[in-house]
Design a protein around this nucleic acid. Structure first.
Lengths: 136, 136
DNA sequence: TTCCTTGCAAAACTTTTGCATTAAA
DNA sequence: TTTAATGCAAAAGTTTTGCAAGGAA
């Protein structure tokens, strides 16, 4: 995490209406550096391992804030805890049935031939697709 | 819930290798009577409301047993708690973004034009598709 | 100074586990 | 009578909340 990254990320948070404080920048740097999927616990352990002073409550509050502001996306994938995805573009996922680990699928790797129209009085709010994989 | 239903359900549990005890029959009757999606809490409240003597632990243990034996399917849909689906055939779901409520989609309502091959060393274990709907 | 953020602890909530009791085979 | 299932309470795990203290504007 260098100065340029930090500045770019701070700017990105500001654009989203998020005040870029110290802990928020650390969490954002971890997630937004590359496309990835992390749980709150993984983020907490990783930051505390680097010696960053941050609490579990702040990690959760920050991730919820980021998700609400559209900087990241929360995924309801099979597993005990929530996954946070740094890729907010429309895309889908492979998921390992053993570990729960997620892998991005590019949107062009999946194409729908037919999709149902939204029922009257509703509109599409998003499509979640998990292709679950078993190791053989 | 009449005698015929109870007998049919007891038989279905036996076929799945599940000993049909009193509480299991009550839970199975609630879920298997029609295609539906219920949380453990909803099942507990519903049964206790009918005066059935059943504990929360038994509801969870029973649902986990049913899912393991393939009588029902556990869904990892967005929301605070797990949903249990009485429909074990391949199918997909609409989900209300507000309430989390699920609706079945028939498999023929969705058709894939293109799907990625499973990565080397893996095979498909299932496809979860949630079309999330917002009320307008 | 004023407002917002953070850490900590406790609370809330979902799910699992241990064990004595009860029901089923 | 022997084994398996249940209820209850407690524990474990995840996420949220309250509040005093600290940091940013």
């Amino acid at each position: 995490m260098n100065l340029i990254d930090t500045n770019a990320i701070a700017e990105r948070l500001r654009t989203a209406g998020i005040q870029p404080t110290s802990q928020r920048l650390k969490i954002a740097s971890l997630l937004l550096g590359a496309p990835q999927h992390l749980t709150a616990e993984q983020i907490l352990v990783s930051l505390q391992g680097e010696g960053v002073r941050v609490s579990k409550a702040t990690v959760y509050n920050t991730l919820n804030l980021f998700a609400e502001k559209g900087v990241i996306r929360q995924l309801a994938a099979e597993g005990d805890s929530a996954w946070f995805d740094s890729n907010t573009e429309p895309h889908f996922h492979f998921q390992d049935v053993e570990t729960g680990a997620l892998t991005d699928l590019m949107p062009q790797e999946v194409r729908f031939d037919r999709l149902p129209p939204p029922p009257p009085g509703t509109e599409y709010a998003g499509i979640e697709l998990f292709i679950r994989l078993r190791r053989v």
